[in-house]
Design a protein around this nucleic acid. Structure first.
Lengths: 218, 218, 218, 218
DNA sequence: AATGAATGAGGGTTCATTCAT
DNA sequence: TATGAATGAACCCTCATTCAT
């Protein structure tokens, strides 16, 4: 995105085509999975030919890699600002959880697909994605440390805490359904309390959002 | 296994062969993933031929299905007895969590592989696996209800609670490593407290296992 | 060939199939060159399917490698016995030249094709062929040394002599034509004198076969 | 080159571009062979685009054809003058051989490449190259006849003599290596004696250059 | 004069599956 | 019971060539 200003309109158009291809690929990957999607299907969907696709992309795996990149960037872009905000550590952590759920549910099919096909990435690409994931997890680590330092969080094992919080969130795509009993808001409310509660000292606990009354009317 | 008594020795031998194939398949699936494993590799490993494999199994996907079945059965067999035990709801829940982590880590490569390839199942098979998963999740639901009824657990949204607990657990394979800083015991200790704590009324909270001192010496 | 006695009839049949494929490949390679021949053409010619071909051979390049091996073996098998015969060094050298021309002309299309496509071999395979070529060239080196040692050949640069002799022979496929003015016999007569003459001391020279009267009647 | 005077500066520039493309093509053909070189590589090397190349040349094969033409012209231009010189037939023949080796070794990669890919030429182009080759071979034929007429050469089969001489020379690229034991001079000395000796009557033979002492110090 | 874009005709290879014996 | 043999449907990717601009 940065640097796009330096492109002339030709390069912009090419970039746009590439994005179109990626969008189409994502769409079909979501529906049928990476392995069961052929380049030809992507081409047909766009009324291109197979050969034309390869004018814009080097390999099919590269498309998968870009899916991962996009997914990670979406989440990183939304959460990075939280760290430098004026919020308290507790509020930051809650915001992290809420934003995570936000992106997760909004872009669930992309994220699920990407996760499902992590091992179909070339080792080099996989490494890059893992590094982005580490960067993301570090945001949690930072906030947790901040909170402990500020005397707000209990002094418990922060590595495992981080993994517990993120695990519960990352599992959401395994059970969430648009037509299911819970909407995004309820889920965010619940998890931002439930997964954080064990960190809090007694006085801070507030169970408002854990209430069983929160079920969506259907 | 039941019903085996009705088999004659021919059928028994065939059943044995089938199990051998499955074991080999599991081993290779674990190493290379389902898609990258060929029937020929399975056959070679057993010093069979491709054709022979098909004498015992109908399709490659059927092997994957059996992997899922085995995985689910392993976990169900370990946890079902807990429900009917004399333990308190809190103790039951902790036991469920501990056993889950036990199986998860002991059989991680099988379970990870199975989870990774849920979408490679035929829809019909996938449905069967989902039903087993539901049966398993119901164990949690029961214990949670028991606990609330007994006044031990807070009266919060039990569906989401169940999903939060199981999500955090199921995510373990994504980060656990034998050579990593935590061993099975520590993880079980931590999660059986952390993921359950928000359910507990203030007086019951006990943070012993959450301690950051719990890291394995390396 | 050795070891074939150890094959059962199944393996023999498989070996036969493989040889058939090779024969067909050679035939088409000769006609159209290696690069312009497709596996499908080979399959069609044999009324096989592409897939069946790959039951017997690992890659297309392997077929080319076998062409080279066959070619080199044909020539090595005919010339190796000469070295250990009772002939004089001069007679041995003449025999080497004659046999070389024999094989060259009888199997010209195979040999030409192989030579033409030496660089289409995988490096590893190419190395193997080069080693066979070296073994062959060593036969010449041996005979030349023998001749010098016996006082029959002049004491000139034997490395270059070897290369001069073989070069002139190996070039034959570039100009020979079945319908051309010279037959195999004449060519053998001529080259076995012309290319060896500079080695001989004056008294031994005999120009019988160099005569211009040797042209084939057309 | 002749006729260039009739070009306007536009055509001149186009001609120059074409030559640049050809030079680049030669360079890459030499390195990777004709078949493994893509038009795109040629374009990239020149910082052109694929499309631009096709503004100047009609097909990839045409580039190969021009390689052959250049190679043949190089050799013809160096040897034609010899024929009309004042030298004796023997000296002429020796000069032909020396010049041939000169060009062959100086431009070996071009010539090797061209020879290697003779069969990748379109039939029509191949015919043209063969005609140039014939013209070249005729130079030898002429000198040989002259020599016989002058009573200097033995009256032997001149067609085969010509083919023997040229064959041994043309094979040089198959074994010559810059880092090998022989330099250009030694090779020229050797071959201009060895390949011509059988033609000479006894009194003329002089073995100076055939000496085994001629090996390059390494 | 130059090129970005598009194409299309393969080409080699893989592999689950079938089946006669 | 076991297997050798055969198949065929794909699939990814390549690249010379064309053409509108």
């Amino acid at each position: 995105m940065i640097g796009m200003v330096l492109m002339n309109f030709r390069e912009e158009r090419a970039e746009k085509r590439k994005q179109d291809i990626l969008k189409t690929a994502i769409k079909i990957f979501k529906e049928k999975g990476y392995n069961d999607t052929t380049i030809e299907e992507i081409a047909n969907e766009m009324r291109y030919t197979k050969g034309s696709i390869y004018y814009y992309i080097p390999t099919k795996e590269y498309l998968l890699f870009e899916c991962h990149e996009i997914a990670m960037n979406m989440i990183l872009e939304k959460t990075r600002p939280i760290i430098n905000s004026e919020l308290s550590p507790l509020e930051k952590l809650q915001e992290l959880v809420r934003k995570h759920i936000d992106v997760l549910i909004d872009e669930m099919s992309l994220l699920t697909m990407a996760l499902q096909h992590e091992f179909d990435l070339e080792p080099e690409h996989r490494q890059q994605i893992i590094e982005m994931r580490n960067e993301y997890e570090d945001l949690y680590a930072q906030v947790l440390e901040e909170g402990v330092a500020a005397g707000i969080f209990k002094d418990i094992n922060l590595s495992l805490t981080k993994l517990a919080i993120l695990g519960a969130l990352n599992w959401i795509p395994h059970w969430y359904s648009k037509s299911g009993p819970f909407d995004k808001r309820q889920i965010a409310d619940f998890f931002s309390e439930y997964q954080i509660a064990p960190l809090l000292k007694d006085s801070q606990i507030n169970n408002a959002s854990l209430s069983p009354k929160g079920e969506k009317k259907r």
